[in-house]
């Protein structure tokens, strides 16, 4: 983590507020504190903020605030960040059907790592993953904390369509595709839970700073949950830190 935030211009209406050059829980917490502080005490002229792993993109109106003023306000705010309390995280449980049609690359991930498919499932579902950021497409979580034991390189030939809900591995990352998209991730399973619904409020299921846990389910459970999801009466299990 940098001692002081670095502020970099990104054209006439954006600035990057960079807090470090590594992915770490400490930098992540500072990003979140900045995001909360900027929402609580808006800086004049700031229109939107995109928090990421180690930086925030600040969109502002140069008619209302100059770059120099913006920079000064952000550095002043940094002095007061310690007063910001982060909400205590929840763990969101994502029911996942591993292998078979839902996870056509499970066998490959297993053999690449000299494991059995069951061992891959055990390792993948045995960790709580920190949701570092949402980005790329609506509701896509960038997760941290996957075991290197199941790390597998991306496919050489990406698939043209990966169905929404697919759970995949790319290098030492794991994630879930919220909507149908092309991609090269190794697919090990699928969840019937919707990570993104444009008509729901909020439209995305996950929140930055929470944890995510994959829970293996059977085909029958998958079908049952999928039915509840489409009927609009499924809600995910969340576990608070205190009752875990």
């Amino acid at each position: 983590m940098y001692e002081r935030a670095k502020i970099l211009p990104a054209g006439d209406s954006n600035a990057v507020l960079e807090l470090g050059n590594e992915i770490s829980v400490a930098v992540h917490k500072k990003v979140r504190a900045f995001f909360l502080a900027l929402n609580k005490e808006p800086v004049k002229g700031v229109t939107e903020i995109i928090p990421a792993y180690r930086s925030l993109l600040i969109n502002y109106d140069p008619v209302k605030i100059s770059y120099r003023e913006l920079k000064r306000s952000l550095l002043e705010l940094e002095e007061r960040l310690e007063a910001i309390e982060l909400p205590s995280p929840q763990t969101v449980v994502i029911p996942t059907l591993y292998g078979g049609e839902a996870g056509p690359d499970l066998e490959d991930v297993a053999s690449y790592n000299n494991l059995s498919p069951e061992e891959v499932i055990e390792i993948h579902s045995g960790t709580d993953y920190l949701i570092y950021m949402l980005g790329f497409t609506p509701g896509f979580p960038y997760l941290g904390g996957m075991s290197e034991k199941i790390a597998t390189p991306r496919l050489e030939n990406p698939r043209t369509v990966i169905p929404g809900g697919s759970v995949g591995i790319a290098g030492s990352q794991t994630g879930i595709y919220p909507i149908d998209s092309p991609g090269g991730w190794r697919l090990i399973g699928r969840t019937p839970v919707e990570l993104y619904n444009p008509h729901a409020n909020p439209p995305v299921l996950l929140q930055v700073g929470d944890y995510l846990r994959f829970k293996p389910i059977t085909k029958e459970e998958y079908a049952r949950i999928a039915q509840q999801v489409s009927a609009g009466n499924y809600s995910v299990t969340t576990i608070g830190m205190e009752d875990d």
Binding site: A10, G11, S13, N14, V16, E18, N21, E22, I23, I50, P51, A52, Y53, R54, S55, L56, L57, N59, M133, G135, Y142
Partner: peptide, 8 residues
Amino acid sequence: ISDGIPLG
């Protein structure tokens, strides 16, 4: 390390 992309 992935970060926000501004218009342009």
